[in-house]
Amino acid sequence: MTTEKLLHGCLGDVCELGIQGAATVSSSAYGGFYFGFCTLISHFLLAGITVAVVYKCLVMKLEHTAGHAFYCTIAFVFFMGEALLVRNSITLESWLGPLNLNRLHAALGLLSLLVGVGGIAIKTLQKLERKREDPNATVRHFRSNHGFYGILGCGLLLGSVLSGLPLYFINGGGSGVLTLKLLHRFFGLAGFLALMVSQMFGYNTGFGRRQWKPHHQKLFKFFTFIATITTVNYEFRTFARDIIGLAGQYLFGNETAAEARVDL
């Protein structure tokens, strides 16, 4: 009887561990499927929004506001969105390797900043030219919701680029490096969110109202909102993990924090 109880208990423990292990694997599989699906949706929507706006701007031969919309959409919607997505792509990392993947991420981020600044400069110069032609004209710089969130996002993007460059020259871990990575992710996430909000306000501008019917504007806003959520959710998870890891270093020491980051 004792042997049967021990055997039964042993088998029970094995079964329990098996169930727990299966639940962990199942949870991980569902998480991977969810984030993979979101990434696929993000690629599709970012490309679709960019193609639709760029096509309209090319039809207008990049005249007036079309030039501003052309470069800013390519930079802030496509380049910056893809910079966030490719950094967390396991498939690309297996193809390119970690170093080349980081280079691709950096190149997309830098292109986003340079092309986006060019797009903002086009609109700024157009407003200055209008003011020179008509001194009595009312010209507002970055005072609309579209302009405010645009320049805010551009500033945060600059912070992301500047905080990301030193990471190529720093080896090892430690709280200093983790803090720098945390700042880099914060600037990148906050900048992308601000720029996508600016993009949504852009559909309400005079340019947006002239080029698209009201129901088309609503569709653009809806798809831009979905693209924003599906693009940032994995990066936001990583950002939260880094905060927990940094807090763990201060509270429990480096080894405990390192173990906590692996578990997360």
Rank of each mutant, 00 (worst) to 15 (best):
K56N: 01
W95E: 09
G67I: 06
N233C: 13
R209M: 00
F223C: 08
E259Y: 05
I244E: 10
M196Y: 15
I74C: 04
G147Q: 13
T73A: 11
L195V: 03
L111Y: 14
I19Y: 07
L195R: 07
Y149S: 07
Y71S: 14
Y34V: 05
W95Q: 12
L92A: 07
Q211T: 07
P166Q: 08
L104K: 05
I170F: 03
V262C: 01
I90W: 12
G206C: 07
A23E: 01
K213E: 04
G155W: 03
E255V: 03
T24N: 02
G32S: 02
L40V: 14
T231A: 11
G202W: 08
E93G: 13
Y234P: 02
P214G: 00
S144R: 06
A258S: 09
L101M: 11
R103Y: 11
C72I: 00
T50L: 05
C10D: 08
L111W: 15
H146K: 14
T73L: 11
K218D: 11
L45P: 15
C15V: 04
L114K: 04
F239I: 09
E235F: 13
F78W: 15
G12K: 02
Q126M: 07
L84G: 12
G12T: 01
L219V: 09
L104V: 11
I244R: 15
L251S: 01
A240G: 13
A257S: 08
H184R: 00
L96N: 08
I170E: 06
L110M: 15
K61C: 02
L189E: 01
H43G: 07
F186C: 04
K127N: 03
K131G: 00
A190S: 14
Y55Q: 01
M1G: 04
I226C: 06
V77N: 14
I90T: 12
F169S: 05
G48K: 02
S42D: 14
I243S: 04
C10N: 05
